[in-house]
């Protein structure tokens, strides 16, 4: 049933222009400019980027929902632009806006979609697993955001796809729904499903993704496993070790000039709350504690934090609000 190849999706040099747009004097707008990625079976591949980075456009081109301007896409070995029912039956799609008719009730809707497949997932199992039985008598229009997402996920899964696309899966999810959905995604990955998700939430990527592509302005800007990205050296000097942040509390107004090595950025974010960010070395820690010892200062708290994916992301895509 499963093809032996491990690649489920490969995108090479994807270009997508939209328009012509009146706001650009009738010119085309380039949403995606030469983006490439590979997704594998049994892996969660995340496209991480700010809103408007081109994530949804990219996966919609991969789903055959948008026609690309250039580049190649291979989804389970086929071009999604000429997808037949056979290919579509092997690919599950959860759209960002759900795509479910507002007047429908969950179970008849799922049963209807299940009918499109020869051998669908047993509905009872899916319904119970995603907790849909708790709101089965409510029309889609009256469901909460989390309930809608769970139903949309069930609709994407009912054909037992080999590839699953999730566009912003945790949008609108309450903590319980989030746990249900994330656990299921993790299980499906173990079962061998190739899962491609977009998110602008670092936490999603950090919790779920085996491999992350960071996208900005329609281009790849970084990629790797979460661990690799966290270790990514973004300082101009490649010989420097990892960026870390030292957080501590002490009495307000201290001047740390000359305590740390050059390049370490020390700030007092609130009165008495300090942070030192940069390529911290053991010597920096020793210098700080020695400096305190010499002045009889006992810090109220002290912690060393590795970088979060968010820091990596912000370092790469800039801290500007866009």
């Amino acid at each position: 049933m499963q093809s032996p190849q491990s690649t489920v999706l490969s995108i090479d040099g994807l270009v997508k222009d939209v328009g012509p747009l009146p706001a650009l004097d009738g010119k085309m707008l380039r949403i995606v400019g030469g983006l490439s990625l590979v997704a594998e079976r049994g892996k969660v591949t995340a496209l991480l980027g700010a809103n408007g980075a081109g994530k949804t456009t990219t996966i919609e081109c991969a789903q055959g929902l948008q026609k690309r301007t250039g580049g190649t896409i291979s989804l389970l070995g086929q071009d999604p632009d000429t997808a037949d029912a056979g290919l579509r039956s092997r690919v599950g799609v959860m759209l960002q806006d759900g795509g479910l008719p507002p007047s429908a009730r969950p179970i008849p809707l799922l049963r209807h979609i299940a009918g499109m497949y020869r051998n669908p997932w047993p509905l009872d199992e899916l319904i119970q697993r995603l907790g849909i039985d708790t709101f089965s008598r409510t029309s889609v229009r009256r469901l909460s955001g989390g309930q809608k997402q769970r139903l949309a996920l069930a609709a994407a899964l009912v054909g037992r796809p080999e590839v699953l696309f999730l566009d912003e899966p945790s949008a609108g999810l309450d903590p319980q729904s989030r746990n249900i959905v994330f656990e299921l995604i993790t299980e499906l990955r173990s079962a061998g499903m190739g899962i491609i998700l977009t998110t602008h939430l670092m936490d999603d990527a950090q919790r779920l993704a085996d491999y992350v592509y960071i996208i900005d302005a329609g281009r790849n800007v970084a990629e790797g496993t979460v661990a690799q990205l966290l270790q990514r050296n973004v300082s101009p000097d490649p010989s420097q070790p990892h960026i870390r942040t030292l957080l501590f509390e002490a009495r307000p107004g201290l001047d740390f000039t000359g305590v740390f090595a050059p390049g370490i950025d020390v700030r007092e974010s609130r009165a008495g709350s300090y942070s030192a960010t940069g390529a911290l070395s053991p010597e920096d820690l020793a210098a700080l504690t020695t400096w305190w010892a010499a002045r009889g200062i006992m810090p109220g708290s002290l912690s060393l934090e590795a970088r979060s994916l968010e820091d990596v992301f912000l370092d790469i895509s800039g801290r500007d609000i866009r």
């Binding site: 499963q2 029912a85 039956s89 499109m116 037992r160 080999e162 499906l188």
Partner: peptide, 12 residues
């Protein structure tokens, strides 16, 4: 979830 993956379409 232990169902095998790999969907197939119902007839047209």
């Amino acid at each position: 979830m232990n169902a095998t993956l790999g969907g197939a379409p119902a007839p047209l």
